[in-house]
Computed example of a mutant assay.
Amino acid sequence: MTDVSVAVVDAKTPGNVGTIARAMKNFGLSDLLLVDPPELDPDGEAYGFAGQAREDILPNAREVTFDHLVENYHTVGCTAVTNEDEDSHVRYPFRTPAELADSLAGVQGDTVVVFGRERVGLTNDELARLDEICSIPASAAYPVLNLGQAATIVLYELRELTVAETQLPETVHERASEREIEGLYDQFDQFVAAAGHPEEKHAKAGRLFRRVMGRAHPTGRETVTLRGILRRATNKLE
């Protein structure tokens, strides 16, 4: 079964951290990662909003860097619907929470669902470094949910991965390690440069490739094969 962690980036309000911890407790998650967190006073609103999560999830929350998330997990960034289309590769394509649950079912490996700031969410630069995007379909008239609501909806949809005692599929898909996948991204960057792709479009091509691989969940063998093909192509071009 996929191990799912939750990360909150640069939260400004301790109460929202507590609300997310409570939702984690509701839906069977326990590993909370905090990037640039506010102070979480045991007598403050974070613990007040956390319910029973004050007993284990909040005290055991770990402070990490954004780099740590990218380097050690399959990352899923949560953001509001932005009406961007296939020509924009930062926030598109995205999965809905239900689609994300289906995608991760039966995939072995560590995944972290990343939530951003209360007002502005995750920046485009941050989203560009993540493997997948998850967005909650909402009314176009007001598509933005507050942080606690968004986390509750996403974690609810993941409940069959984290709560239900379901059997794993007979054939388990073993995703490559994050180090192997990051190596594939680096090799692709070298290939793009050697192929003479316009320099100003390198970052966009890299984001597109990251999104494709993020949805594909390549295995270790697939990753090694792709890296080898890209390496040989790069050498020939050079």
Rank of each mutant, 00 (worst) to 15 (best):
M1S: 11
T2C: 13
V4Q: 09
S5C: 10
V8H: 07
V9N: 09
V9I: 14
A11C: 11
T13I: 15
P14L: 15
P14W: 15
G15A: 12
G15V: 04
G18Y: 07
I20D: 01
I20V: 15
A23F: 14
M24Y: 09
K25N: 14
N26Q: 04
F27S: 06
G28P: 03
G28T: 00
S30P: 01
L32E: 02
D36E: 14
P38H: 05
D43A: 11
D43L: 14
A46R: 03
Y47G: 07
G51M: 11
G51K: 12
R54A: 08
E55K: 14
L58H: 07
T65K: 02
T65N: 10
H68L: 02
V70D: 01
V70P: 02
V76G: 03
C78P: 03
T79W: 02
T79Q: 05
A80D: 02
T82A: 10
N83S: 07
E84Y: 06
E84M: 07
E86A: 12
R91L: 04
F94A: 14
R95Y: 11
P97I: 00
P97H: 01
A98T: 13
S103R: 12
A105V: 09
A105W: 15
G106L: 08
G109M: 05
D110V: 01
V112H: 03
V113H: 08
V114C: 02
E118L: 15
V120R: 13
V120Y: 09
G121I: 02
N124P: 03
N124R: 12
E126R: 08
I133R: 07
C134V: 15
C134S: 10
I136W: 01
A141C: 02
Y142K: 04
P143E: 00
N146M: 06
N146Q: 04
A151P: 00
T152L: 13
I153E: 03
I153D: 01
L155S: 02
Y156L: 12
Y156G: 09
E157S: 09
L158T: 04
R159P: 15
T162F: 08
T162L: 08
P169N: 11
E170Y: 10
T171S: 09
R175E: 08
E178M: 07
E178I: 01
E180Y: 00
D186T: 10
D189N: 07
D189Q: 06
A194W: 06
A195S: 11
A195L: 03
K201F: 03
G206K: 12
R210C: 04
M213G: 05
M213C: 06
R215P: 14
R221F: 07
T223H: 04
V224S: 09
T225R: 05
G228D: 06
I229G: 00
I229M: 13
L230Q: 10
A233D: 04
T234G: 07
